[in-house]
Nucleic acid binder design. Structure first.
Length: 926
DNA sequence: CTGCTAGCATA
DNA sequence: GTATGCTAGCAGA
């Protein structure tokens, strides 16, 4: 770009590179992480943003005008860590060798140099790109100046600043002045954060406006503002980036001195050698072997590392596992090693497989390495994409996958893993179809002990008495977490090979428990294992989303929210954050003196929907809040979020179905959750219009009718209830006729509504108290309805009693298919907890059996689609509903067959019924 | 940056 | 009154 100036805020990146990188060292032990990060970043910038002029700007030593103005400036900042200070000089050296002009101006901060040059560039008709990790520089953005953050890949133009901060670039100074900057020790207004600052600036336009109207702002924050009035002008000067520094005095201007030079190969070679960057050295010198660690040293170092005997016998004295297992882990770096392992797994009766990847997102993560284990204690790790500074040469990902493909894709080669649904996605990301999944330790644990945790570290502790290396031990956590491809090979092998080893041992420990119990084995083998294969396909199919429609809805809702917000401010006679229950409570119950209806568990007055409904009868503000809450939820959770979750490659949303989290056997959906898309209100249902079918396809949805009540009829065997379903009656209406003692045809809609609430209450293990509060009636009246119900449906009463008894005696209840649902607190001495467990015990068999049924239906539907070579695809499961995307040519077929498969998936004492809907989108299909 | 609470969407 | 997951605000690092 001939008309572009590229400025890098070197000082801000120094810190970020230092903290983002692991503690890398060269052979001499000198720290090199920040150097590595910095070089990497500059290389990428130069290729991504070719510019006529460029410079890397650093802070110089010495005081600046800000120190004179405010001695406390940056006073709180901790001294630079030694390990970073040691890297400053080398970084300057590297930047120069790379051909970048460096600017360091004594007495002028890097920010001010950047600001001044950006203004000069604009005056000369140039566009400026500022690469920084510091939000303060957002104040410089205008049509000719853009910020980029290479660490987060974020790009901020004028619109971007407005979106990110809620104020335009010309208000950033005011905004930052109000908030203050804790890093530089510049105070703002106490308790004023981003939300409040945006609110004030929206109300009074500018900092000067806020200052002029300071007396109008109520509350503690208003007092804080008034206390800060004297300070704010000074704060503003500190926050403001100078754009008029006299750089000419330092002979700096945008001329040939800011034109990048060729990288000096000789200097870089010397530099890489000096600091031990072997991969780059190899790259630059064109010598493929330079610096590669000899294989033998790794093999030696790794074999036998972590030589702890596993104390398997401690917890499993059934002899399934040898009492001591000596771990012997191998890093596979050569063709010969790989061939030896392929021979082993081809001969093995069962092999544990595990993948290491670049992220936890199943659809986008890339393979970093594979571990295998077919004999407890003997495992290997095959790294294929580790790329830290001096990583040894590895076999390529493509070649390893091609060599392993015949085995991976062979249905007859038995595999076990921990959540292989994830690994299946990873292999699919590279064009390999994982087959032959015969066991999954995640599902074994889930079927065996639904209520316990199923992650590998806790499983290893529980079943093998072994403390494993955790992912966090290896990669750290939070912001400082590194990608697995940055992990040093020996450490990676210790961790990854152990995972495969432990997986195999876990299987050997848990399988006997399941194998010897016919019900558990059936649930595991006939339901959970095949379900996981189906789920992987559904996730991969994804759901097509109309982004434009959602964006339009977001805009529309956004406008309405602004109106409601203003409306609320007027009613409250002050601005406040409508999203903050705390602030809302202060206004409602403090300022306006509204009555407290109920309290939250932690004692604060509640402002939830029920309370607002009640208060809305007498006051105007709660009504506004109700509409605001409803719309804000739709916008933030759905219309804003879903478009962002669309996969760039497929144009679809790919949820993740968690198969082992819900203790009842249900699935859970996350990232995004597709099981809570609104349906009750008209406003909410519009979101379903954005769940669309591809061209020449339709959405077909089928849901089980009254599934849990039917299951209650089946399990309880209650004659009246069974008859109602057998006769195909409206079950709520039938219940109402029984309770109110009237003929079916005389049931009023009010009576039916009551009966419906009671039916749902029964499924949830309700009490008279709960029923009363739900129906808004006296407790005694509720109790008499319940008594009447149990009198009319004695089988149901018996079932409730039996369930409680069984739960207390065994600690678990069962579904119709024999799934065990454990109730940890069923015998708790704590009354409320125990009662909670009793209600859960009553609900669990119904919810759990429904979950079993739809899982069986999913397996049946997938089998049918595949056996008949149909193009139709399952794309969602919502507890009692299956959603398919169907080519128009298969519409009639699916419309007929889908509900049949669902209804006939099991023969209960009641008929099962599935109802079908068809449309161009999910809303129409209902 | 992390963990907590409040609130709310679904079956 | 059962079972989930997600967002925003906020307090304490």
């Amino acid at each position: 770009m001939q008309n572009t100036l590229l400025l890098v805020d070197g000082s801000s990146y120094l810190y970020r590179a230092f903290h983002a990188m692991p503690d890398l060292r060269n052979p001499q032990g000198e720290p090199t992480g920040a150097i590595y990060g910095m070089i990497n970043m500059l290389r990428r910038l130069r290729s991504d943003y070719p510019a006529a002029y460029m410079a890397c700007v650093f802070d110089a030593k010495g005081k600046t005008f800000r120190d004179d103005l405010y001695p406390e400036y940056k006073a709180q900042r901790a001294a630079m860590p030694d390990d970073l200070r040691l890297q400053i000089e080398p970084i300057h050296e590297a930047v120069k060798a790379m051909g970048w002009p460096i600017l360091m101006v004594e007495g002028v901060e890097a920010d001010d140099v950047i600001g001044t040059l950006a203004v000069e560039a604009t005056a000369r008709g140039l566009n400026t790109i500022v690469s920084t990790g510091d939000k303060d520089l957002a104040q410089l953005v205008n049509p000719h100046v853009t910020l980029i953050n290479t660490m987060s890949n974020e790009k901020l133009d004028e619109a971007g600043v407005l979106t990110k901060f809620g104020v335009p670039p010309e208000r950033i100074i005011d905004y930052l002045t109000l908030i203050g900057d804790t890093v530089d020790n510049v105070p703002g207004v106490t308790k004023c954060g981003p939300k409040t600052a945006v609110k004030w600036l929206a109300e009074y336009d500018s900092l000067d406006g806020v200052i002029a109207n300071a007396d109008k702002i109520k509350g503690v924050v208003g007092d804080n503002l008034r206390a800060a009035l004297d300070w704010l002008p000074q704060g503003r000067v500190l926050i403001t980036v100078k754009t008029d520094c006299d750089l000419s005095a330092h002979h700096i201007s945008i001329d040939e001195s800011l034109v990048a030079k060729e990288e000096s190969k000789e200097a870089m070679l010397a530099f890489y050698k000096r600091y031990g960057f072997k991969t780059w050295l190899r790259e630059l010198s064109g010598d493929a072997t330079a610096g590669a660690t000899p294989l033998s040293s790794i093999a030696k170092a790794t074999a036998g590392s972590g030589n702890t005997p596993a104390q398997a016998g401690l917890f499993n004295d059934d002899g399934a596992i040898p009492a001591t297992v000596i771990s012997n882990y191998e890093t596979v770096l050569t063709e010969a090693q790989l061939d030896a392992w392929i021979a082993r797994i081809n001969a093995a009766s069962l092999t544990a497989v595990d993948t290491e990847t670049t992220s936890l997102e199943p659809m986008t993560a890339q393979l970093v390495g594979i571990s295998l284990c077919c004999e407890a204690g003997h495992a290997c790790y095959i790294p294929v994409a580790h790329q830290y500074a001096d990583a040894p040469a590895q076999l390529s990902r493509a070649s390893v996958l091609e060599k392993l493909r015949p085995w991976l894709e062979d249905d007859s080669k038995a595999k076990v893993g921990q959540n292989l649904k994830y690994d299946t996605h990873i292999f699919a990301n590279h064009g390999v179809a994982l087959r032959g999944i015969v066991h999954d330790t995640l599902l074994e644990s889930y079927v065996f002990e639904s209520h316990k945790s199923h992650n590998m570290d806790s499983l290893a502790l529980r079943h093998l008495g072994k403390k494993t290396i955790s992912f966090e031990d290896v990669c750290g956590k939070g912001a400082a977490q590194i990608c697995f491809d940055q992990v040093e090979l020996q450490r990676a092998t210790d961790y990854a090979a152990e995972d495969a080893d432990i997986t195999l041992q876990l299987h050997l420990a848990m399988w006997p428990e399941i194998e010897t119990d016919a019900s558990l084995q059936r649930v595991y083998h006939d339901i959970e294992l095949p379900t996981s294969v189906v789920l992987q396909k559904i996730e991969r199919n994804g759901v097509l989303i109309n982004k434009d429609l959602l964006n339009a809805q977001s805009n529309e809702i956004g406008k309405r929210l602004l109106e409601l917000e203003q409306n609320a401010y007027e009613l409250a006679e002050q601005p406040f954050n409508l999203n903050s229950p705390k602030q809302l409570g202060e206004i409602f119950f403090g300022k306006l003196g509204l009555p407290v209806v109920k309290k939250t568990p932690s004692g604060a007055p509640s402002t939830d929907e029920e309370v607002l409904q009640k208060l809305a009868e007498d006051y105007p503000l709660p009504k506004v809040l109700l509409e605001y809450r409803g719309l804000a939820k739709l916008k933030s959770t759905y219309t804003d979020k879903l478009p962002k979750m669309v996969n760039a490659q497929t144009g679809r949303v790919h949820t993740n179905y968690a198969q082992a989290v819900a203790v009842t056997g249900r699935l859970a959906s996350n990232d995004p959750n597709l099981q809570n898309i609104p349906v009750r209100t008209a406003e909410g249902r519009r979101i379903r219009e954005a769940f669309v079918a591809a061209p020449e396809h339709v959405i077909i949805s089928a849901d089980y009718s009254q599934i849990e009540l039917r299951i209650m009829a089946h399990i309880s065997g209650d004659a009246s209830l069974l008859k109602a379903f057998a006769d195909g009656e409206d079950v709520h209406k039938a219940t109402a006729a029984e309770i109110f003692g009237v003929a079916l045809d005389d049931v009023t809609s009010e009576q039916r509504r009551y009966a419906k609430v009671i039916n749902f209450g029964l499924i949830y293990g309700m009490s008279a108290f709960g029923l009363a509060s739900n129906l808004g009636i006296e407790r005694a009246a509720a109790q008499s309805y319940i008594d009447k119900y149990f009198q009319r449906y004695p089988g149901v009463a018996q079932y409730m009693a039996d369930t409680r008894t069984k739960a207390k005696a065994h600690g678990y209840v069962e579904t119709v298919f024999g799934r065990r649902l454990w109730l940890a607190e069923i015998n708790s001495p704590n009354g409320p907890r125990r009662q909670g467990a009793e209600r859960a015990a009553i609900n669990a068999p119904m919810q759990g059996t429904a979950a079993d049924l739809i899982k069986l239906a999913m397996i049946a539907v997938q089998n049918w689609l595949e056996n008949d070579h149909l193009q139709s695809k399952m794309i969602m499961q919502v507890h009692d509903e299956l959603v398919l995307e169907v080519p128009e040519s298969e519409l009639e077929l699916v419309r007929k067959k889908l509900p049949e498969l669902m209804a006939n998936v099991a023969q209960l004492h009641v008929p099962l019924l599935a109802e079908v809907g068809i449309g161009k989108n999910w809303e129409e299909a209902h």
